[in-house]
Every structure is written in C-alpha cells, then in structure tokens.
Write a protein that binds this DNA or RNA. Structure first.
Length: 113
DNA sequence: AAGGTGACCGGCC
DNA sequence: TGGCCGGCCACCT
C-alpha cells in the first residue's frame, strides 16, 4: 500500500481531518461529503487505517455518526483513541462520546468552501 | 479486468 | 427501541 498519488482520495481525507479543531470530532459521513464523495464514508475509515504512518493526522477525532469510537481497535493500543480524546477534554464512557452534539464539528462543504 | 472488502450510513422490519 | 440488510465508493490482489 502506499500513497500512489498526492491527489488521491486519501489525501483529501487527510486534509480535512487535519482541520478538525482540538476538542472536537467529525464523523466519517460528514468528511466524505466535504470532499465531494457522499456515500464514501467507509472509504474514509479505510483512509484512517492507512494514516497510521502519518503523525500529523488526528485520526482519533474521527468517529461514527453516533459518537461511538468504532475505530479504537485499529490504534496501537485499544485504549489509545479514548485517551487522546480525553486529553482534549472529551469525556468517553463505554466507547461513547458524552455530550456528542456539542463536540461534533462539521467540515465545510465543497460548495461553501 | 473483475471481484472482494471495509474504523459507515440510512432506512426498514 | 433496537437490530438487520442493502447500498455505497475507492482501493487492493
């Protein structure tokens, strides 16, 4: 695997994820929409899996639509994702982000940007 | 070149 | 009120 092109779908995903403010989270679906590929939410998750090597992509700030830490298993440590979030002031109980509605950050759509 | 796959989503039982 | 099913799209073999 590897980055085949600097303009790949993955790179677009990373660009958005890098913009997620500290203490906030974004959903896979919203990120997919923001890069002009609504419905490619699953691929966003895949991109996160590949972002492993990159140190400037805050993959822990990406959760599913319910505010659930569905990707935690893919981190170096199963509890690493939760710890990183709690470091930023987000409370997580049983893989669920508390007060999720106020923590969510919606990336700008292509039209708005 | 075709098919399998996944850190999802929405809608329908 | 919760679980299942199908669709979805880019990437990999």
């Amino acid at each position: 695997m590897g980055i085949t092109s600097s303009e790949s779908f993955f790179e677009k995903v990373y660009a958005v994820v890098r913009r997620i403010p500290q203490g906030k989270v974004a959903t896979y679906g919203d990120i997919a929409k923001s890069i002009g590929s609504p419905g490619a939410a699953r691929m966003v998750g895949w991109a996160m899996n590949a972002s492993h090597a990159l140190d400037d992509v805050p993959a822990h700030r990406v959760v599913n639509r319910n505010g659930l830490l569905t990707g935690k298993a893919h981190f170096a440590h199963p509890d690493l994702m939760q710890q990183l979030l709690e470091n930023e002031g987000i409370v997580v109980i049983d893989n669920q982000i508390q007060d999720f509605k106020t923590k969510i950050w919606v990336p700008p759509l292509p039209e708005e940007a």
